[in-house]
Design a protein around this nucleic acid. Structure first.
Lengths: 102, 102
DNA sequence: GCTATTGTTAACCGAATGGTTAATGATCCG
DNA sequence: CGGATCATTAACCATTCGGTTAACAATAGC
């Protein structure tokens, strides 16, 4: 089991799938067209995205409907923003201090 | 060369280093204490973070001063937020439509 | 019922990742 | 100078990752 959203987004093909699904739900074929890899390769990428909870799947007949589940995506983005802001705030404090010295 | 911020953040130790540096610059020893791996392992993780531009290094005597460079971090967070929002907006539209049907 | 379509699973392979120990560089300090 | 300290590089090893082909499963449509 993977369960790490950053790891899930570490591969460009997987980010490509997410980008496609951000426009709305799609079948496997639709969401993964044009990546230039075989179908088994795609299947593996999808499993990683599912395991982290980034993507959900609904089987409808012989096609599988994929959709983004943005909760995990949001949490990960929030983590990054939080780290960025903590550092930026400190940087501003130091910057102000340096300006005062002049 | 790695140069992919998502790949750089795919490893928990590397995220741990980023978290520490979000509190302010630190030496290698400070920023990487308590991860329970050898120093060469740490060196490799640092190289990955540097190659993506997430972390910068300033050599000062025999110690190396590390600091976050939040630009790349911000770009990655922005990408995720953008995907999330695009999907959420569509979801809201569909949701509203379904409510109207009642 | 046969065939095409959609997608997965199984088995395998090479390359990358993440870790180790041993040796090396470079600086500080008595 | 000589030792202690901070950190990297080199060489090696096991595991994971990302890809392949071949075979299978399940539905759709003639």
């Amino acid at each position: 089991m993977v369960n790490d959203p950053f790891k899930a987004l570490a591969h460009p093909i997987r980010r490509g799938i997410v980008e496609h699904l951000a426009a709305g739900p799609a079948t496997v074929g639709e969401a993964t067209a044009g990546f230039g890899v075989s179908k088994p390769a795609i299947s593996k990428h999808l499993r990683v995205l599912e395991e982290t909870g980034v993507v959900t799947r609904t089987v409808e007949g012989r096609t599988h409907l994929l959709a983004l589940d943005t909760e995990v995506l949001g949490e990960a983005a929030e983590w990054m923003e939080q780290q960025r802001r903590r550092w930026t705030r400190l940087f501003d404090v130091v910057d102000d201090y340096l300006k005062e010295q002049k």
